[in-house]
Design a protein around this nucleic acid. Structure first.
Length: 122
DNA sequence: AATCTTTGACCCTCA
DNA sequence: GTGAGGGTCAAAGAT
């Protein structure tokens, strides 16, 4: 458009932005709140503005332009996780779309912390 | 062998 | 016009 300054209305072009905050995550390990959909991580960056680590996830379906981003504090991830959904799903959840029982993709966010000096074999 | 994950670098936008 | 930050893509490695 005529590049309106648009200082007030900041619409990033993303629709249906949702903010979800899980009540609590289990124990010392950080896992991804399953939504019943499949996500693929395509990036991770530490945001200085908020001093939080931000992970970028995209819906596995090409038909689905839904995106999801997870933010957490490197010092206190278990108690400060923030999940933000961007876009909408254009296809139903994968078979067995039962968040309650679908423990499909559990991303170990704890594994992505910068402090990982080395992997530890079990 | 296929699939998924991770990291780095690059790009773009805004101030 | 420049700088900084944020966001995305690609490739490689690992399982």
């Amino acid at each position: 458009m005529a590049t309106p300054s648009n200082p007030s209305s900041v619409d990033q072009g993303a629709e249906g932005r949702r903010e979800e905050q899980p009540p609590e995550v289990g124990g010392g390990r950080l896992v991804m709140p399953e939504d019943g959909y499949e996500w693929k991580k395509y990036g991770q960056k530490f945001i200085r503005n908020i001093q939080m680590i931000r992970s970028y996830f995209k819906c596995r379906n090409n038909r689905c332009n839904a995106k999801k981003r997870v933010e957490w504090i490197p010092s206190n991830p278990t108690n400060n996780i923030r999940i933000v959904y961007d876009g909408q799903h254009s296809h139903g959840a994968p078979s067995g779309s039962d968040q309650a029982s679908s423990s499909a993709n559990q991303y170990d966010l704890g594994n992505q912390v910068f402090g990982r000096s080395n992997n530890e074999p079990s």
